[in-house]
Structures are given as structure tokens and as C-alpha cells.
Design a protein around this nucleic acid. Structure first.
Lengths: 341, 341
DNA sequence: CTGTTAGCGCTTTCAA
DNA sequence: TTGAAAGCGCTAACAG
């Protein structure tokens, strides 16, 4: 039988209450008594039963997700996954609140975070815009004991508890590799469509893409990125322009959202060889485009995994429990039409 | 406050014991009383607290993994992950036993499974060889209430509770796609190395690979698969033969284990264009080969994920709790040197 | 067939 | 600074 608090109390020659005080390092224990208990813990190999502790405490984990509003497919799916997680709240002892703020709006984000100060949750998961103010606000929360998880987009050099998202530089490099390999030495122009170069993820993807493409096949000409703000209409227009104007457009990479526009433009092309098309995020639209051969590769981050990982990490951090690092790492999924889930 | 058994008992006008009986559908409750309680459950929205139940029951989940012995890197890593899981046993209330049986040895497997009959665990996860006897043995365990999870390799049409592994037909198709796309219309010969054509996984991979390659570029000639029984030395020899003999060997696919042999053979090639090389399972060796450009693509199944999924599913099945399907699905990971974890 | 009562391992008043 | 005792939500004897 694994030792319990009773065994521990007996073994240390103190009462249950004292054991509990030491275990939860609460004040009011003489240093000598404390060390006597700690010694006993080591001696009998006591490991505290978190489930029992949570039961006794009636503990639930109040967790807040702060995410962008708007109808970008990926964010829609992220929010959907948060709703799904709410479904599991009773079983997982969580109480999840989702706060939506306008995308790319630092002030709104700051306000939302500040509002959490009054009644701080156990953890905050946030799709962060990177400004000084945002960092300050998150730091303040962290200082008051809130576990901070950055979601999807990380804050460079910021001491969050965890990042639940992918390495976008690596994602860009992966796109570059696949583009170059699929073109196998061919030369020509590559069109790039981005959301906004003000967002870190997109910057990183572009940098990685260019780097890798240049490494493998420097003869390819990468056209300047078209910023379409994740808007399908603008993506559509930009893609048409690229396809019509660029002589020898052999590849096209949409590193942002708005794939519906890309798919529409590609689908309208006259038959004949299509450029290699690579985009991000698996949605109903991109899945259909992959299956139909309109898009060749989809790079994906699993929103469900991100949300579940964020929750597990916030809970773990909030009670000092270890996390399984490999489990919480978010992969850069590469989907061809052949390995769709 | 969420309703408890007390509320339920009161609301149904019965005692705690009766509530408990219907909750765990134990016998000895009049049908009318039972329905009265069930009604109350629905009325007040009672959801049972599994953690508290487990505490009261002192419940632990005895789980048995039956896996092949031998030094194939993937199986080594699978066993390592099982050991890792043991590490978490106290927290997860599991008691994990790992039984090793010689690879591909149906009789030994049957014997190992039969031995579980005396004291059946809550769940069995097994890397199964597909024979009638094995199926019969697993069915018998299932009939006595044991949750059955097939690991890595599934049993076609068998009613297991879950399969924790990848779709190998899809994996083969993915390999075929990548091979064809990387070769971009080039013609030539493709060498294939397999472990054993008696194993379902390998059959499936080969079928998928051929199919897909033929669809995309029928001019490629796929050489007959060399069966090397996952042995690095034999793989090495086979690869050398292929590289030396085959005029215009443009690609090589190892769908089995023994990648050390493949890597050795490729590394010894005179400089000049190498064939596109695709293999399975990310290990220290294949990682280094990817990084060094010796291998182009590694398809992977995450052994850690498989083990964790198997455990979660066995626990869930064993107490009738739902599983999060998307979380337990094992992906076909595609690794290039750019997106290594 | 149904109910009473004493726990599971830990926390939390309330006294001392 | 310490301890005794009641209780978290559920289960399990043991009586009736």
C-alpha cells in the first residue's frame, strides 16, 4: 500500500493538520517540525494523491481563453474547440470562460486581460498580439500566480509558462522545402500571399520559406508577398493577378488565411499545368481542395490539440504537477490528399 | 452547486445505497425504484464524479501491454514509452505490466494472452500477429470484460475497442505521393525494401505505395520488394545491390525497419545525385540521416502518443466513459529535415 | 429489496 | 505553533 497522510503523520510524529500545512506550505509550522515532516516524506516515499486533494478542496480550475473574434476559419475552429472543452468541464473540473477580442487589436486585448485582475483565474491562455502593454498585463497576471499559456502565436523572449502552437519559422521552411522539391529543379516565379507582415507568425513563415527555397533552388524567383489581411476576396484578387500576370508562375504559397480565395482563383484556371500550391490550416475548404488536386499540400496546426494542451498545462502549472512535454508539443502537420485524418 | 449523490437520493426518495446500486447497475433494485432514480438523475442533471468514485473504490486500473521483444528501434522506443507510462502510474491510478513475446511468434503471443485469463486486467493493449488463435484468445478476454486495444498493427474486421496505430495503406500512399512528386515526372526505377510480406502493415504500405505511384507517374518502374526481415545487415546488402545494379535507380523506399542498413548503403554512394529516399519511423539514426540529407522523408507514428492513447482508451472503456476521438487518433507524421520535433 | 454507517486520502474549521 | 474532528462525493459492508 502506498503511504497516506496518516502514515506520514504517524511517521513524523505530528498530526494530520501539521502534515497538511507542510504539504501545502502554509505558514504556522516551526522550522524544525517542518523538516521533521519533510524527512518523513522522503523516508516513507510519500506521494500526495492529487485527486483526493482536489475532492477535499472541492477544487475546480477557472481557466480563461482570450481569443480573436472574426470568421477566419482557423479561429472559428479554435473557438469551437474551446466550446468542446467546456463540454468536458465537469469531468475535468474546469470552468472555462472564453473572451473574444477583435483580431489584431492590442488595446482591446489589454482591456480584456486587465479585467481578469479582479478575480484572477488559475490560468489564462491567450492568442497574443505582441506589444509592451500586452506583455505588461500578462506579467502582472503571472505575478499574481496565474498560469500563462500563449496560444497559436508566441511572445518572443517572454517568460510564459507554455506555448501551445507551432514553430512558424520551421513551418515556413517546411513549405519552402516542399515547394522546391515538388518543383524539382524547375525554374520560374513563386507567388506569396500573406495576411499581415505585422504579425509574427506570418513574418516567420515568410522568412523560413524564402530561406529554404533559396537554399535548395536559388534560381526560383520569389515575388514580393501580397498582404491580403486574411480576407478571401483580397486573396482571390491577388491570386488571379499572380496567375494572370506572372509569366511562368510555377508555385504559389498562401501563408495566411483566406484560402477560399486562393482555391477559387486556382479552380478558375484554364486546364493545363497548375502551379504547386501550398497553404496553411486544414478546413472543409482546404480539405476539398486537397482532395480535388487544387492544393498540393496543407500545413496544419491542430487546434483541438492546442486547446487540450493549453488546458492540461494550465492545470498542471496551477498545482505544480509535471507535464508530459512530448504530449503537449504541437506538431507541424503536413497533409497531402493521402494522409488526411 | 452541481448535484451529488445525496441530492439524488433525496430527490428520488431513496437511500444512498440504492442510488449507488442503480448508478453502478448492481442487482437487487426493484425496477420501479430503479426508474424512479433514473428519472431523478435526468431531472436534477446528476453527473457522477469519477474521481470521487475512484477514491472510494480505491480503484486502480491494471493494464497489460503485450509487445514484441527484439531490438528493432521502433519497438525499443515503444517499450521505452511503456516504461515511461509506468512512471506516471501513481498519478494516473494505473498498474502497468509489460509482457514481451518474440516478434512474429503467434504461439508465444497466444500463450501470453492465455496467461492473462486467470487474473484478467482491466485492459490489454497488444501488438497482434493475425491468426485465428490470437483472435480467439482476444475475444475470450473481451468477453470477460477486458478492454482490448490493438497497438501499431490492427486486426482486420476484429471488434477491438480501439486501434492505436496508423492507417498503413494511407502511409504507403503518402510515401508514393511524395516519391512521385519529388521525382516530378522523371522516369526510372524505384527500389523497395520490406520487412516481411507476411505482416499486414508491410503489405498495406506496399500496396498503397504502388497504387499511388502508378496513379501519379506510371512510367516509374517499381522493382519487386526485397524482404529483409527488418534486419539492418540484410537491408544494407539489399540497398547496395539496388544501388549498384539498377540502372537509373531514382528512388528507394524502405517500408520496414532496419534503416541503419539503408543509411549505411546510401552514405557510401559516390557523390552525385542520390535517389530519393523515404523510410519509416523517426529514430536517432533516421533523424541524423534526414539532417544530413541522406534520407529525404521519414514517415512516423508517434510511439508515445500510441501508448498514452492506449492507456486513456483502456481506462475509459473500462469505466464506460467517453473518449475524445480526435485526441486518440494516431497521425501519419511526415518529417522533413525542416519540421523535426 | 432497501437503508445505515463507516470509510477512501486529503483539507479545513475550530480549539487548545 | 499544533491537534481533533468533520467532511468532499462516492462506495461497501452489514443489517434489516
Amino acid at each position: 500500500m502506498r503511504p497516506t497522510v496518516h502514515d506520514l503523520a504517524q511517521s513524523a510524529g505530528v498530526s494530520l493538520a501539521t502534515v497538511d500545512r507542510v504539504l501545502n506550505n502554509r505558514p504556522g509550522v516551526k522550522a524544525s517540525t517542518r523538516s521533521r515532516v519533510e524527512e518523513a516524506i522522503a523516508r516513507i516515499g510519500f506521494v500526495r494523491d492529487v485527486a483526493a486533494a482536489n475532492l477535499a478542496k472541492g477544487r475546480i480550475y477557472p481557466l480563461t481563453f482570450v481569443v480573436p473574434s472574426g470568421d477566419n476559419s482557423f479561429m472559428v475552429s479554435l473557438r469551437h474547440q474551446i466550446e468542446e472543452a467546456k463540454t468536458r468541464s465537469i469531468a475535468e473540473r474546469t470552468e472555462i470562460v472564453m473572451v473574444e477580442v477583435p483580431a489584431f487589436d492590442a488595446e482591446a486585448l489589454v482591456a480584456a486581460l486587465r479585467a481578469l485582475r479582479n478575480d484572477p483565474p488559475a490560468g489564462v491562455a491567450v492568442v497574443a498580439v505582441d506589444t509592451e502593454e500586452v506583455r505588461r498585463e500578462l506579467l502582472a497576471l503571472k505575478a499574481s500566480g496565474v498560469a500563462i499559456v500563449t496560444l497559436v502565436s508566441d511572445l518572443e523572449g517572454f517568460d510564459r509558462d507554455h506555448f501551445a502552437g507551432v514553430d512558424n519559422l520551421a513551418a515556413g521552411r517546411t513549405a519552402g522545402s516542399l515547394m522546391a522539391r515538388f518543383l524539382a529543379g524547375k525554374t520560374g516565379r513563386i507567388g506569396v500571399i500573406a495576411g499581415s507582415m505585422l504579425v509574427r507568425d506570418h513574418q516567420d513563415r515568410l522568412i523560413g520559406f524564402r530561406e529554404r527555397l533559396a537554399e535548395i533552388n536559388p534560381s526560383l524567383v520569389i515575388l514580393p508577398a501580397e498582404e491580403c489581411h486574411d480576407d478571401p476576396h483580397r486573396v482571390d484578387a491577388a491570386a488571379r493577378r499572380l496567375l494572370a500576370e506572372a509569366e511562368g508562375l510555377v508555385g504559389i504559397y498562401n501563408l495566411g488565411a483566406g484560402n477560399r480565395g486562393l482555391i477559387a482563383a486556382l479552380s478558375l484556371m484554364p486546364s493545363g499545368p497548375r502551379p504547386v500550391a501550398i497553404a496553411h490550416e486544414l478546413t472543409d475548404h482546404t480539405r476539398a481542395a486537397l482532395e480535388g488536386g487544387v492544393i498540393d499540400v496543407i500545413l496544419n496546426q491542430d487546434a483541438g490539440h492546442e486547446v487540450r494542451a493549453a488546458i492540461r498545462v494550465m492545470k498542471a502549472k496551477s498545482d505544480g504537477t509535471p507535464v508530459i512535454a512530448a504530449q503537449e508539443r504541437i506538431r507541424i502537420d503536413i497533409f497531402l490528399k493521402d494522409n488526411l485524418p
